[in-house]
Amino acid sequence: MPDAPALHIDTLRYRYTPTGPWVVDIASLTLDPGQQLLLTGSSGRGKSTLLYLIAVLIEPSHGSITIHAQDIHALQGHKRDEFRGQRIGMIFQTFNLLHGFSAAENVMLAMMFSNIPRREHRPRACELLEHLGVDRPDAPPEQLSIGQQQRVAVARAVACKPDLVLADEPTASLDPENAAGAMDLIQTTCRESGAALLCVSHDPTMAERFERRASLDELHEKTSAEAQR
């Protein structure tokens, strides 16, 4: 469905315990294909939880999430994992690159669970890393600079040409100079690959980078107001 939104959230609610407060409470949120959205919010407002809900890693208490018209929580078992592996890319604050694997292998790990032919994994990973400026694809991540590690993480997130990239505080552990470079890289790469980008951050300096911005606090208040009406 080419015109379907990359992401659509409808009356999404989540809380950790059956009687606890809503950690995520969003009436509606849509992200078009290729669009980039910055979602801000103070710590503890459920930014990461929202990403895990979108990545089908946790179950919502209420509501639905669709990615390209596919209700992802309606998927069962390994189909969910397949969907996540092929259609969603994730970038983390601490990169979460795996030790014991080289930079290229970290990227290839993302392709392992996709239907990309095996023989294409390595050339594709190396090409992507080269494109992103990683000059030592066979080096283990711990031997690379923080900036290079960030590039490997971005390459891994877009390796399977996902529809949606979720970035969880991608610059929180970087100094301002590196942070700017990293965001340039993430946004450019997503634009080039045609993936929509949902970036959550509590860093106010990020706002100017995104044409579309939303505050999780505002989304929550909006939901409450609508509920009261």
Partner: peptide
């Protein structure tokens, strides 16, 4: 996150 199922 990369797509491995629990079973795998």
């Amino acid at each position: 996150v990369l797509g491995a199922s629990r079973g795998r």
